[in-house]
Write a protein that binds this DNA or RNA. Structure first.
Length: 283
DNA sequence: ACCGGGACCTGGAAGC
DNA sequence: TGCTTCCAGGTCCCGG
């Protein structure tokens, strides 16, 4: 499940393997990942062919390739997307959706089993695509303002976890790192933000930043050569998760058995002792 | 403006 | 063994 750290690993891979390359051909093998592109698969291919990639950028879980001039290719990995750089003629992946032939002979491939992800051509989007103007800064952005975001969160009426997952409030956090940040902060995700102090929310955001930095540090070491892989970036999943997916295991801090609950049609795992569930709000 | 819930997807796991 | 159902979840969209 690619969240900010996994997408950042992909961005770094694109930065080292794709920036500076010219796209000599584009083949779209499945139309669905191009659904966000108003000009469709043909228009996308035509717009990108012949262009040179100048930068690989990211905000939250979105990444984009700036092209020569002012345009960009915007991408999101969804649930299962990968960006792979492969030697020419390598066997096609089962879920290969889009292939870019680059001028050094290598191939950039968008592979996505579930197709929640996608690519689109963003005219004028090199600095920041209009399509993601509504996406908030992520905690690793140098301009991220913890106190301002904490104030905004506190002023809203919904539960903390919902706000952590709201990409217009703070971007990059998904279900996994939301559970990890809440566990580190010792806060139950169903608590209303208005019941916490501003500094407490600030600390939660700091934990979100720290846990994603930790994951990035581990994931960032596992890619090399001509291979940019979301799944391969996730050594963090196996070794360092304290909350997500840990139902039934002892809390790493206090030993209490971790519980799983449904929230927002998602599973949430937390420690019953470190993260006390709020009382039901009447009405 | 804000909030909450359902739809979109596929394939592996679990249940029968 | 083979079928059906459940589950994973990021984002968009709609109704309230």
């Amino acid at each position: 499940m690619p969240e900010l750290p996994e997408v950042e690993v992909v961005r770094r891979g694109l930065q080292s393997h794709v920036v500076g390359r010219r796209v000599v051909a584009v083949e779209v093998l499945h139309a669905r990942p191009l659904r966000r592109d108003p000009s469709g698969p043909e228009g996308f291919a035509a717009a990108v062919t012949g262009r040179t990639v100048t930068q690989a950028l990211r905000r939250g879980k979105y990444f984009w390739l700036a092209l020569d001039g002012t345009d960009a290719v915007l991408g999101h990995l969804g649930m299962s997307g990968q960006m792979l750089v492969k030697a020419p003629g390598s066997p096609a992946e089962r879920h290969l959706r889009v292939r870019f032939d680059l001028d050094d002979g290598s191939e950039l491939r968008f592979v996505d089993q579930r197709m929640f992800g996608g690519l689109s051509f963003s005219p004028g989007g090199a600095v920041l695509p209009d399509e993601i103007a509504h996406i908030a800064l992520d905690p690793l952005d140098p301009d991220f303002d913890v106190e301002a975001v904490a104030r905004r969160i506190r002023s809203r009426g919904s539960a903390l976890k919902r706000q952590l997952l709201d990409q217009t409030v703070v971007s990059g956090v998904g279900n996994i790192y939301a559970d990890e940040a809440l566990w580190r902060a010792g806060i139950h995700g169903e608590r209303l933000a208005s019941s916490l102090t501003g500094p407490a929310i600030g600390r939660l955001l700091d934990h979100a930043k720290d846990v994603m930095s930790d994951a990035l540090e581990q994931g960032g070491t596992s890619f090399d050569a001509l291979y940019v892989n979301v799944n391969g970036a996730s050594g963090y999943f196996d070794r360092s998760l304290s909350a997500y997916g840990q139902e039934g295991r002892p809390c790493p801090r206090c030993g209490t058995t971790m519980r799983r609950e449904q929230f927002m049609n998602r599973s949430s795992t937390s420690c019953p002792r470190c993260q006390v569930r709020p009382r039901r709000i009447p009405g």
